[in-house]
Amino acid sequence: MSEQVSITVKVNGSIVRRMVEPRLTLLDFLRRDLGLTGTHAGCEMGACGACLVSLEGRAVHSCLMLAVQADDLSVETIEGLSENGSIADLQAAFFERNALQCGYCTPGVLITARDCLSTGGVPSRDEIRDALSGNYCRCTGYEAIVDAIEVVARMRAANAEGSK
């Protein structure tokens, strides 16, 4: 066992201080040390997208980042995004369109979807598919996922138009 390093990370809005081994990935830190098991471990090599979290507002693979690299930074996981209601419309659309079956990929897909829609406007289906290129879904397939994201994009655009 190598030496432990002290880190301070803002996780879902709360400041967390822990001693960690340098080799601990952000993924294992979230799941094991903090019990935030909504972030899933898949390939652990950046191919499947199950472990995506939001770092300083941008989607990143928590398996391709060390916990020590998140020191002084802000991380949001699917738990935080679910509780603060910021992706409630996406979650509802995924439910209504059956855009998940086993749900293993869903937290990562939702983080990608949130990023994809963060710039506003309605992306084309090709653009949505391109955004999802780093997320593997092994059961539903992608049609329903793209549908759900597209529906929310249109809904948000209509709401933004209506509130002008």
């Binding site: 950046g46 997208g49 995506l52 770092l55 941008r58 989607a59 990143v60 693979h61 391709l64 980042m65 990608t112 990023d115 994809c116 391109d130 955004a131 290129s133 780093g134």
Partner: peptide, 12 residues
């Protein structure tokens, strides 16, 4: 740049 891996990889 759009050909480099996936969006989440490009973020880091």
């Amino acid at each position: 740049a759009p050909f480099v891996a996936h969006p989440a990889i490009r973020n880091l």
